[in-house]
């Protein structure tokens, strides 16, 4: 069964706001039973993607499916199987924590009051406290509890760790891991915290300027990105010689290169520029940052440097 393996599927998903493309022809499959991290800088189109997935925004072109159901016509039944945490842990300020529970309980049949209560306790929120009056982290806690206690099959989280202190952040990761361990639960999480990604994710997807650049298993991704350090001048001319160059970063005397799918050809090209080039082990952060840094900056900065010399 097609639907069994893939929890989220998009095909050529495109959204424009006016003349500006927020998302371009995005084709992505999020497999079931895994944790996928969606990474990108602010404004890269992550939130737009999530709103499109949940049918809260119509696409300009293309389509998306959630648990086998078209996003634009999600049935209430499918919605109850999807937990969604919107960016910023929004809650209506007049609500008390118990109102939040009521709101969810009445519209999600598998509501887990026990889980909700224990999460509230963890974040130190009393059921009678008003959302307007609790701290930001506590609000995040209520918001998370509201989402997790609906016992979803698929969890879509938009920057869940925003505003959380380290303890709460760790608790969040633990909670999500515990959730993911139950069979066949899928998580798509948008986050800026790459350490958490490393702990959490099976897969990583990187979106930059509305385009999907990476969609791969986390370890495969790291295996496929290589780094070099060289002590030589490096400009646009040199950059053009290296296939799959993602990013080059100049420190005082060295240039760090990050390359996708390096092979012997890459090695030769790098060595041609500088004989002393060394292969570098990359952290996940290095690899991801290479993608997130605006591509234009690479050329322009090196060009600028060249002109100075």
């Amino acid at each position: 069964m097609r639907e069994d393996k893939i929890a989220i599927r998009t095909r050529g998903l495109t959204r424009y706001f006016g003349q500006k493309a927020a998302l371009r022809s995005l084709t992505l499959d999020v497999p079931r039973g895994q944790v996928s991290a969606l990474v990108g800088h602010n404004g890269a189109g992550k939130t737009t993607l999530i709103r499109l997935l949940l049918g809260l925004l119509p696409p300009t072109r293309g389509c998306a499916e959630l648990l086998g159901c078209d996003s634009q016509s999600l049935t209430p039944e499918v919605r109850t199987r999807v937990g969604y945490l919107a960016e910023g842990h929004f809650l209506w300020g007049w609500m008390k924590a118990r109102d939040a529970a009521r709101l969810q309980r009445e519209t999600f049949p598998r509501w887990d009051q026990h889980l909700f209560d224990s999460m509230l306790k963890f974040f130190g929120v009393s059921p009678d406290s008003r959302v307007r009056q609790i701290s930001r982290g506590q609000r995040a806690g209520v918001s998370l509890a509201m989402t997790l206690a609906t016992d979803p099959e698929l969890l879509v989280l938009d920057d869940p760790s925003m505003g959380l202190d380290p303890v709460a952040r760790r608790a969040l990761v633990e909670g999500l891991l515990a959730f993911a361990r139950r069979d066949d639960r899928t998580i798509l999480v948008c986050t800026h915290l790459l350490d958490d990604v490393e702990r959490l994710a099976d897969r990583i997807a990187i979106v930059s300027s509305g385009r999907l650049l990476v969609d791969s298993g986390l370890s495969e991704f790291r295996d496929r990105i290589g780094g070099w350090t060289l002590e030589a001048e490096f400009g646009a001319q040199q950059a053009a010689q290296i296939p799959g160059l993602i990013d080059s970063r100049q420190t005082r005397e060295r240039t760090h290169l990050v390359v996708a799918d390096p092979d012997s050809e890459t090695e030769t090209a790098v060595q041609r520029i500088s004989g002393t080039a060394r292969r570098e082990e990359l952290t996940l952060e290095d690899a991801v940052l290479a993608y997130l840094r605006p591509a234009a900056m690479v050329g322009s900065i090196s060009d600028a440097l060249e002109n100075v010399r």
């Binding site: 022809s25 084709t27 293309g62 990476v214």
Partner: peptide
């Protein structure tokens, strides 16, 4: 329009390719 030219730095799983024309 969905055939976006590749930049050359894309990393996708082997079994999924963007080349397949999606239903519109």
């Amino acid at each position: 329009l969905d055939e976006v030219p590749k930049i050359g730095i894309e990393v996708f799983d082997q079994d999924q390719t963007t080349a397949t024309a999606p239903p519109q």
